[in-house]
Write a protein that binds this DNA or RNA. Sequence first.
DNA 1: AGAAAAGTGAGACTTAGTATCATGTTGTCC
DNA 2: GGACAACATGATACTAAGTCTCACTTTTCT
Lengths: 209, 209
Amino acid sequence: MLSVIAVHPPVGRRERNRQETRQRIADAAARLAVDGGHVGITVDDIVAAAGVGRATFFRHFESKELAVATGLSGAGAFVMVDLIRQADDALDAVGAIRWAYAQLGVDFEALRSMFAEQALLCRWSPAMVAWTLHLYVDWEIGIGEAVASRLPGLRPGDPRPRMIGAMTMAAARLAVDEWVAGDCTGDLPALMQRYLGVIEVPAHLPTHT
Amino acid sequence: MLSVIAVHPPVGRRERNRQETRQRIADAAARLAVDGGHVGITVDDIVAAAGVGRATFFRHFESKELAVATGLSGAGAFVMVDLIRQADDALDAVGAIRWAYAQLGVDFEALRSMFAEQALLCRWSPAMVAWTLHLYVDWEIGIGEAVASRLPGLRPGDPRPRMIGAMTMAAARLAVDEWVAGDCTGDLPALMQRYLGVIEVPAHLPTHT
DNA sequence: AGAAAAGTGAGACTTAGTATCATGTTGTCC
DNA sequence: GGACAACATGATACTAAGTCTCACTTTTCT
């Protein structure tokens, strides 16, 4: 009678609906931001475009900016985390990250304008910057989990996964900052490798205490 | 006639007044947040306490949260940057940072409750977290400048200073996160060293390109 | 001294964010 | 399979953040 139903993801219809609503809102927010160049986009615009009530918006996102940033980043974050996971097993944690971002360099020209649009919108206002940074924390965690298995001697509470995630996001942020400062005309993948080059992680957890 | 006036800091009275106003606002914001446990503190409260007009508030701070965060961090940031600068010349960049944060460990108990208060307020709401992260960017820059002279082969555009600043702030943030998760009862300086231990920077700029 | 430039205060106004309640939908237990 | 609990939504009203404009004062430069 029971079982047989849910296979792996024990997510019910309720949770699925909820995530779909959240996605609709984020998508609408990002689309409006891109279309309008961000000028004058309001929460009422977003909820109208997403076809949800105003209260629902704030149940899913703590601020307008977070919704826009989430929509802009969209699948991008998941793509990167997946890429890191797919890197050659022989690569260590930082090596896998460098490889993943190098893959982004292949065919970068096709994505240049999209990246530029996203980068500029995320820097449009101080509030956008602040909430984008807030969003990055989630990515830090994701990246940390993605590389954890590559860390020798990993134990519960090991600071390395989170730190590697944070350092990676810092490299990405600073690389894009420099890229934007040069009017998005430079070689972003190369800049990214340049900043990632500063990251070095001890092969083993320093035997402290 | 001219010259002879300003010695080193070419800051005029106007700039000084401006900074004083900004400081008054930040101080009032932090004091109200600490006193009231943050509950229900409004911009009108802050401007009344600071004795400035509402418009002036938003000329100095892009959001209420940024004002509170700035006031809370207050002198702390400057103290750390100064400490890093005062570290023994024999120490390299990361060594100087580790030493500076180790100094914080001396007499930590006297500061424990103050740190706890500040840490909890900065994590009170998602908005506080977001704007605190925004504020951290300034510290990143400050730390980067403070250690730049310790980096061999430094050249314009070198990614190391900013990256070291960002990695340091990441370590601080994650250490405090873990400390707060343990109800602020643990050994924060030790946690800090633990996270800082993950940072390793190549002695020389990787000869890329 | 006088004019340009920049900071401030006051108030009106738009919009973000919160709280409450009624309604529909999903999950669970018999 | 039906009833009930739990949760997601929508609508509305309300508080407070953030913007804008204008009149006024202070600083700076010539």
